[in-house]
Amino acid sequence: MSNPNRLNLSAGVFSVCVAVSLVLAKLWALSQTGSLSIAATLADSALDLLMSMGGLAAIAYAAKPADYDHAFGHSSAEDLAALGQSAFIIVSAFAILAAAGVRFMSGSSGAIENEMAGMSVMVLSIVLTVALVSYQAFVSKRTGNRVVAADSLHYIGDLIPAIGAIIALWANRQFGIGYIDNVVAVLAALIMIGGAVKIGKGAWDALMDRAADDDTVASIAGIAGNFAGVHGFHDLKTRKAGSRVFVNLHIELDGKQSLEDAHAIGAALRRKIVEAHPNADVLIHKDPIGVQPHPDDTRHH
């Protein structure tokens, strides 16, 4: 296994270990305090665990070649998992919103106890999260792995609810202002829903073969349009599956050159596109300049 793969796997294992530790610590803190804001961060950490495990599996799959039954790989499993994760987030978030709503309507802030235990766990959560994010940043910079980078961004977003939970617990301990716990829980739940919608939409778009983002398509078009030996291109099609981008492209070449020379140009262009987009799977069809579709070909490219 190459060094980049080892680094990526180590980041994935570290992420899972941190997520497990945080889930266990926050379960204990919730039992000690009864704080809704801690419940919100617990639900988020449970999601982190699922996402980290999915990310680790994706990294492991990325190191495996496609097999006979899955010639294009297994990356769509990432999108199926993401849909399940987004549903889990939304259900958890609405459960937290419902509990907060009941407390608001009843005029009760809930009985929050042993705030110091809860604050200690949240401080531990922040320290572990910062350590993980720092290591993920190091790995993603060295390897360019987008799964590690995306996981890092998600953990960075967890810092806000964690800090909010500390503020809520401190305010309840110092001033007896318990309703802040409900406010923090609502804000954290809304953040969770926003993240779930984004994750779910991305997964749904990929499963529906939506094209890659405009910047990626423009980048590929720019590379092909300015590549030596390529006199034009057409029928640029892209789709995403998990972290992979599949690219189909027709390029126009000098029809008088040898097949070997044409192949060399196409292979070099493919390498250039993959260099700019490491997760791309590129298929290039070569046409002579000015070729017209055959009259019997009723299907578009």
Rank of each mutant, 00 (worst) to 15 (best):
V13H: 01
V13D: 10
V13I: 13
V16F: 09
V16H: 01
V18Y: 01
V18K: 00
L24E: 08
L24T: 10
A25V: 02
K26L: 06
A29S: 13
L30Q: 12
T33M: 09
S37H: 09
A40L: 10
D44Q: 03
D44N: 04
L50I: 14
L56T: 14
A60V: 12
A60S: 10
A60N: 10
A62F: 11
A63H: 07
K64L: 14
P65N: 07
A77E: 07
L80A: 14
A82S: 15
A82P: 01
Q85S: 06
Q85F: 03
A87E: 07
A87G: 02
I89M: 15
L97C: 12
V102P: 00
F104S: 09
S108F: 09
G110Y: 07
A111G: 02
A111Y: 08
A111K: 04
A117N: 01
M119L: 10
M119C: 05
M122W: 01
V123N: 12
L124N: 12
S125K: 00
V130N: 10
V133P: 00
F138S: 14
N145A: 13
N145W: 08
R146E: 10
V148H: 04
A149P: 00
H154N: 06
H154L: 10
G157I: 00
I163M: 14
G164H: 02
I166W: 01
I166V: 11
W170F: 08
A171Y: 08
N172W: 01
R173I: 04
Q174A: 15
F175I: 05
I177D: 14
G178C: 05
L187E: 08
L190M: 12
G194W: 13
K201P: 00
A203H: 04
D215T: 13
T216V: 02
A218D: 04
S219E: 13
I220T: 08
I220A: 07
G222P: 03
G222Q: 08
F227G: 12
V230H: 11
V230T: 06
H231D: 13
K237Y: 03
T238D: 06
K240H: 08
A241L: 11
S243D: 04
R244V: 11
V245H: 03
V247F: 00
E252Y: 05
D254Q: 07
S258Y: 03
S258R: 08
H263Q: 12
A267M: 13
A268S: 15
L269N: 12
R270S: 14
I273E: 03
H277S: 11
H277L: 09
N279K: 14
N279F: 06
A280H: 10
D281A: 06
D281G: 05
I284G: 12
D287S: 04
I289C: 09
V291I: 12
D296F: 07
D297C: 03
R299A: 15
R299P: 00
H301R: 15
